[in-house]
Amino acid sequence: MSLFVDAVGFGIASGAVIALGAVGFTVQFGISNVLNITYGALMTLAAYLGLVLVGWHLSVWLALVVVAVVIGGISVAFNRALVSPLVQRGASPFGLIVVTVAAGIVLQYVVTAIAGPQAQTYGEQGNSSIGVLGMTFSVAQVTIIAITVVVMLALHLLLTRTQLGRAMRATASNRTLARSCGIATDRVSDLAWLLSGMLCGAAGVALAITVVSFDFTLGATFLIPMIAAAVLGGVGQPYGAMLGGLVVGLVTQITGALWDPSYQDVVALGVLIVMLLVRPRGLFGAAWSARRLLA
């Protein structure tokens, strides 16, 4: 029982990081309808930018904030320079995916060329333990969980209580109609890419803190669980992505604790397939219409 309770705690900690990235991924998809595979490489870039800042003796948590802003800016630039022009020229969804895959690989190689292929680390960050309801967390894990919760609440308020949130939901629902109603959909799109990039940057640094040691494949490795979380929750559904992240984290850790750890990722992806067979639109997609939270 103790092992199970501990595994739940570890799952929440893992799920928090996955959720952070998954929400950013799904928000951008909900607004732009572009499956941005470059997201993984941007997480890698974020981890390495964090490394530079930590090397300058910046607090790792301050580095997380700075990197989030920087990656947000890069995300907007990426959209304006590459994605938007291709969309305007009528590129197919599959073509856009290929472009984002290619851009991700290029970015990953650039990072490797500059930083080298060897593993990197921020060093130990808040490794002392805290007991909560029988579960054990490190200070760093508690901090990341807190950051995730705050970000999720802020996102909820943004989407439901602000003019910008309403504009984002309107754009996600029907871009043409929103534009004809006077909404600056290009600006809304920019903001969605900014928000997504910031979450991507925060997730990249949080991942680097969590895994302790990382290399240039960090983003590519964790992009799959994040996409799984987003799909599990219902693509375009921020709350679904949060829940999806939690489910993926819990399933992997409980599998590791109670069964064979080498199958923990396999089981998580197996759960994804089964859930989609039962609820094809994801956990939130069946209850609410597609993209309802962003619509």
């Binding site: 092992l3 893992s14 990081v17 054990t136 969590t210 490795t221 850790q253 590791g256 750890p261």
Partner: peptide, 8 residues
Amino acid sequence: DSSSYSSV
């Protein structure tokens, strides 16, 4: 390269 080996 898992995000956590705490359960293990």
